[in-house]
Amino acid sequence: MKKLMVMCGSGVATSTVVMGKLKSWLADQGLDKKVTLYQSKVAEEVNHLDDYDVVVSTTLVPDNVKDKVINGVPLLTGVGANKVYDKIKEEIEA
């Protein structure tokens, strides 16, 4: 089981939207049985991102963890969303 963390600034608004999109996308891809979704705020997770296989954020994260984090903003607006889904899929299957 892969662990996928979705974070935003408050852990309630934009991450909730991304969670909803990812839930339906994972089901469409037949990946929903392979992935557990978690949701939180950046401030609470930033020091233990290694606990997760995939990390998606709608807000800026500190430079030292940038490489680990996928920018989830395109999933909100739809602009460039496919690239983000591809990247997430790649990391789930890695």
Partner: peptide
């Protein structure tokens, strides 16, 4: 959102006052 360099010229602002966003998923 999510960027430290890009700026947006915003012409409409929706200020979201939410008590429990989980219940407002459809709205969002």
């Amino acid at each position: 959102m999510g960027s430290d360099t890009e700026v947006v010229e915003a012409k409409m602002i929706f200020i979201l006052c939410l008590k429990e966003a989980h219940k407002q998923l459809d709205m969002l």
